[in-house]
Design a binder for these strands. Sequence first.
DNA 1: AGCACGCCGACT
DNA 2: GTCGGCGTGCTC
Length: 815
Amino acid sequence: MKFAQIILPLNLQGTFTYSVPEAITDLLLPGMRVLVPFGGKKIYTGIVFRTHDEAQDAFVPKEIISMLDDSPILPQEQLEFWAWLSDYYLCNMGEIYRLAFPGSLKLESETYLKLKPNVVVDFENLDVHEMYLIQALEIRQLINLSEIEAFIPKKEIIKTINSLIDLQYIEVDEKITEKYKAKEVAYVRIKDPEAVRAQLPEILLQLKRSPKQQELFMMILQMHTENPETQIRKSHLLDDGNFAHSQLKSLVEKDLVEEYFLQVDRLESYEGETEQLEELTEEQKRARNEIVAAFEEGKNVLLHGVTSSGKTHLYLENIEETVAAGLNVLLLLPEIALTKQTAVRLEKKYGQALGFYHQKLSDFERVEVWRRIRNNEIKVLVGTRNALFLPFRNLGLIVVDEEHDTAYRPREVAPYFNARDSSLILAEFYGGRVILGSATPSVESYWLAQNDRLKLVTLSERFGKVSLPQFELIDFKEAQQRKKVSGNFSQHVLDEITENLQQKNQVMILHNRRGYANVVECETCGHVSYCSNCDVIMTYHKFSNELKCHYCGNKSSKPSNCPKCNAENLNTRGVGVEQIHEEVSRLFPDAEVDRMDVDSMRRKFAYEKLYEKIESGETDIIVGTQMISKGLDFDHIELVTIPRADHMLYVQDFRAEERAYQLITQVSGRAGRVSGEGKVLIQTYNPQHFIFQLIRENDPREIYTYLLEERKKFNYPPYTKTILIELKHRNEAKADRASQFLGSVLRKYLPPECILGPEKSPVGKINLLYQYQILIKLPRGKFYKIYKNYIKESIEEFEEITAYRSVKRYIYVDF
DNA sequence: AGCACGCCGACT
DNA sequence: GTCGGCGTGCTC
């Protein structure tokens, strides 16, 4: 007898042992999907992690119902990667499985059964449930498991199915692929061009009373006349909002126009000509040679290139070389909105061999990418962090663009992992190489480069030898004393904005705080509104006239009177981006001022619309949160100002200075991309602050030296490895007690200086859950693994206490 | 994670 | 008298 360790899509520790039916013992391989019963009535699609012959005595393993793949859907490298992730990030493989697979590749009780063709059923020897199921299948060809529940008791379902599969009467329907239809796109054409031409006056007369239809008809006719070969996409015709669907429908009904459909690839791959890259500059050539040399040494690369230095160009060169060597490439981007520019260039190069994978794809589209990757049809895949889990073959290169971006390690989705760090491991399993690229590398990556674990390659010139923007610090306190201030802006900044507007330049204003004001306060009694679910003050959003909680999304309308003492004089404190936007609009009444933040971009296509408005030059001033620091590469932005730069430093986070540096540098990179005369004005109460001074001097080496010294001084990463454990419960005392207990267990095993807390989290309550945290700082090197095993043991000990089982537990490794 | 079982309160 | 709340235990 043979056994298999199966990964199930459940948040449970470890794998589960199943026995392998004799018929497939020689066929079953790690990485294949199998159907297994679990618990009383559930059926799951599991993944074979490994097969073995170690007999089991603690329990009787159940048997695998069926094998779903002829060959492993998941390559060995991915299985090793999952195991590594689960071990390193202290999460379960089931969580990874859930995240990694598109829904329809891990069907559960939705799995369909069918009769085997040409079977003769011997009803005499069937029990009543088996008979029901066969009869049901004779009527309907496919039945899924939850439908079977209607006529067979839950506990009997698995037994019934198993016995019928054993008797070779039925089988699991595996043709998942047949369930998706090819996507079709609607096109429009003149139904009978000859006839139309002959009878045009009559037709126009017929359409006299519907001018819109006439206009639309003429437009289609004109398009046809100009180029009879072009296909006219229906959506393009209606997109600009000039015509309504009903008008087109009328034309179709009048038999003048007809609609037809063409199948397109769901992923809308590029179908045009592919083109060659432009030549590299001298500096880029040097960098390229350094990358080649590093790869030959077996080293991965940290590509530190100032904004607009042509990092993408270098990526493309390396991608091309990798593909030419017969290997495949993964290009990771922090968010899908950034794919636009990169994608255009890659499409021209790789056409159909390019794939995309990100959160916005539908399940079918995801499966399609899976299929194409498995068939080795995709040479270059552009995607967000989940693309790490695709079943790559021959992965030769991973490029992680904007590697400093925090989108690579979101705290909100389980399992927690850092896609940038993980990509280094994944590449190792595949024997591939990695390029981490950024204009502002993370302190951690920079440190790795300093310690020879990554090869640092630098691009310090902007493309076309354009100068970097000039930084200027404005002492806001001094400006206030000299009364040269209007609201949040010093006169100097206002003058600069005015001048730029006169020269028809665009201006960007960064203010990284959502809403209008942080606090609405009653002047009489001092009352402020707290979120009812969280331990947080509600932020005032004037645009929607609401108080919003930025942690749980809770909203309430803004009160006009104090809810406590009913006084009318409510005051606001703290400046948000809405207020800056309002102020700038007032100060520059003739300018077109637009706001870009998550709140204003929530509506569909809001981002695309504003993007085009800025691109066309219609917008004069863009006021926004950190959102404006990404992806807005326009030629006419000459001035960037940060009116309240100090905000960024007053965050309780050991990365606050690093983030401020990255944000300021990224946003300043938008200025003077073509002219080379960009300017960045930073208003601050602390112009002496080291980080501002360093940013102004713009010497990266100095900045990283400073940031690293600070990290070293306070024992933060990269000098230590951190693990944050959060415990949450709706009963505060219970959360407190649980964290005290876990803390005491940890202290049993770990040196006391490694453990900070337990203590109440900075935000003590979110979504009605009270949260307590323990921060663990571990030394790097060989003790790390030992200590981490102690942590695992401590958590197991903690889990044995049944009273704390309802306490939610979150672990963030390298948070 | 999901589900069953079992124990307590608030309702037709 | 029952319905359903969630604490507890179990799943190969």
